[in-house]
Simulated scan of single mutants.
Amino acid sequence: MQAAKQVYSASAQAIAELPLLEGFWQAAVKSDPWGGRRWLASLLAIHQPERMIPLDCPWWNVAATREIDAFLAARPDARVFEYGSGASTAWLSRRAREVISVEHHAGWHARLGELIADRANVRLWHRDLSGPGYVSAIAEAGGQFDLIVVDGRDRNACLAQALPFLKTGGLVLFDDTGRRRYRSAIKACGLKEDRHFGRSYCVPYPDFTSILHG
Rank of each mutant, 00 (worst) to 15 (best):
H105S: 13
T65D: 15
L173Y: 05
A3D: 14
G36F: 06
I138T: 06
S101Y: 03
Q2C: 12
W39T: 09
I15F: 04
D128N: 13
Q2K: 14
A160H: 11
G23F: 00
R183H: 15
K167I: 04
L20H: 12
L44Y: 00
A78Q: 03
L112R: 02
P58S: 01
S200Y: 02
P54C: 08
L20T: 13
L55Y: 01
A10R: 12
A12F: 05
R51Y: 04
F197Y: 13
P19Y: 02
Y201D: 05
E114V: 13
L163P: 07
A139F: 11
G169Q: 10
V122N: 00
I68E: 02
R51C: 03
D151V: 03
V99S: 00
A185T: 08
D32I: 00
W59Q: 12
G170P: 02
A120Y: 10
D151G: 01
A10T: 12
F165N: 14
A14N: 13
A157W: 06
L55C: 04
A3R: 14
A3W: 10
F145S: 04
Y8T: 08
R75E: 10
A90D: 04
E193T: 12
S31K: 02
E50R: 12
E193Q: 13
A120T: 11
A160T: 12
L147K: 02
S184H: 13
S184I: 13
Y134E: 08
P204S: 07
W34R: 14
A139S: 15
I186R: 06
V150I: 11
G198E: 12
E82M: 08
A106E: 15
V149I: 11
Q2E: 15
G113F: 00
L212I: 03
W25P: 08
I68W: 08
E103T: 06
R94C: 10
P206F: 03
A45S: 09
W108K: 06
G178V: 05
L55Q: 04
K30D: 09
F165V: 11
G113S: 03
A4H: 10
L159C: 05
R183M: 15
I116N: 08
I68G: 01
L124Y: 01
G143N: 10
A70Y: 08
G198W: 06
A41D: 01
A188V: 04
L173K: 09
Q26F: 09
D118F: 11
V150C: 02
T177L: 10
W59D: 10
D176W: 06
R97D: 11
A41S: 06
S200F: 03
A4F: 15
I138V: 14
K167G: 05
C158V: 02
Q13F: 01
R155P: 05
